[in-house]
Amino acid sequence: MSYLQLATSLIFILIPLVLARTLRLGLEKDIIIATIRSIVQLLIIGYILTFVFENGSPIFMLLMILLMIGAATLNVIRKGDGIPGIQWIILFTLIAVEALTMGILLGLQIIPFEAQQVIPISGMVIGNCMILSLLFLNKFKDEVERSDEVIELILSLGGDAKTAIDTSLKGAIRTSMIPTIEAQKTMGLVQLPGMMSGLIIGGADPMEAVLYQLLILFLILTTAAMASVLVGFLSYRRLFNEKAQFIGLTYKKKDT
């Protein structure tokens, strides 16, 4: 695809802009910002990837992955507001999931140690981990705020912190994993997954595209489970003190 063809495709941005303007949705500014950001970010990443792929150095590959982990962490920590130390929990989770999945993929030689393979797959793993962490934290905080009386009730009966928060924790883990599982059930029936479509458009053999896509689906299921379980089990402890007393979500006071 040429830059001219890409410029022509901007017509697809005009349609939502016209609709937003006509219906007075107040989304025009956001649509323009989103479009500009996606163009700039993807072009920059395109140049960086070209450099990393041509250079072939593992150091650049590692830097690229660290950059993705850093960006994903920054994106998630705002959602974890109220849980002390959430930034370290998210960072640890992303590193652990990436290390484990890449360890298995490379260790068992499922994919070769090449930037063209490692970076895109890492991007999908880290991106999915980020989304699952966001989903989990959203639900978990909601559950904790809704169930604070039951949590204190169980503590008052002599239950420990884990027992007191068990229902909220598992409920949030389950809720955050369901979309991933449901999406996999209809995969290929309702839509062709993005990566597979990309490979087919790029001229790859459809069966080869399917095999890669299946690999990604399995990875996504693993990252979904690991991200929500790790973030959950590491963060619930921060809501209690060492005497099994419920502190709850502690929001920092904003300076006025």
């Binding site: 009966l157 002599g158 420990d160 229902t167 005497k243």
Partner: peptide, 19 residues
């Protein structure tokens, strides 16, 4: 041991929270 203390000191809450 606070967990043991809590078994010996029962508490009924205003809203009677239920699971």
């Amino acid at each position: 041991d606070l967990l043991e203390v809590r078994k010996r000191i029962g508490m009924a809450f205003q809203s009677a929270p239920m699971i």
